[in-house]
């Protein structure tokens, strides 16, 4: 009987221990996203959609992860004041400010900036978005 109680007590301790371990593994950020151990911090793709939800780029935007720039030419007649950005990025990273909302890119002299924050939230890289508008030859 004594031995039986002892085993139950050990199991109880094991369950409590594992629960506590789970909680402390990956904390959450203010948006309830996991803060992980990953330190990768890069943009992998960048897209701009027009009001018709189609790309406005003449060809895919070029990302320079060293210079931290995105360069792209948008089609002739594009409404730069209403574009919806989206992107790909390193695993577990986040982007600030928020993408996926209508954004004004019309001030070409002051390019928009987006910051990638790594999964561990310790590395930040700010990308500048340089756009040009296609012109008639």
């Amino acid at each position: 009987m004594k031995r039986h109680n002892y085993i139950i007590f050990l199991l109880f301790l094991l369950i409590i221990g594992s629960m506590a371990a789970c909680e402390s593994d990956y904390p959450m950020d203010e948006n309830d996203l996991l803060i992980t151990n990953r330190s990768e911090c890069a943009l992998t793709s960048f897209e701009l959609l027009g009001s018709d939800h189609r790309t406005v780029f003449v060809s895919a935007a070029v990302i320079d992860t060293i210079a931290q720039t995105v360069t792209g030419a948008v089609k002739y007649g594009t409404n730069l004041a209403k574009l919806k950005p989206s992107c790909g990025h390193s695993i577990d990273a986040i982007i600030t400010p928020e993408m996926g909302v209508w954004t004004d890119f019309s001030d070409l002299a002051n390019p928009k900036e987006y910051t990638v924050v790594s999964g561990n939230r310790k590395i930040r890289k700010t990308y500048k978005i340089f756009l040009t508008v296609q012109t008639k030859p």
Partner: peptide
């Protein structure tokens, strides 16, 4: 419409 333009280009059937 928000910041809509005064023109649209390159329309196609079904749009």
């Amino acid at each position: 419409p928000g910041a809509a333009l005064s023109y649209v280009l390159n329309m196609a059937r079904g749009e």
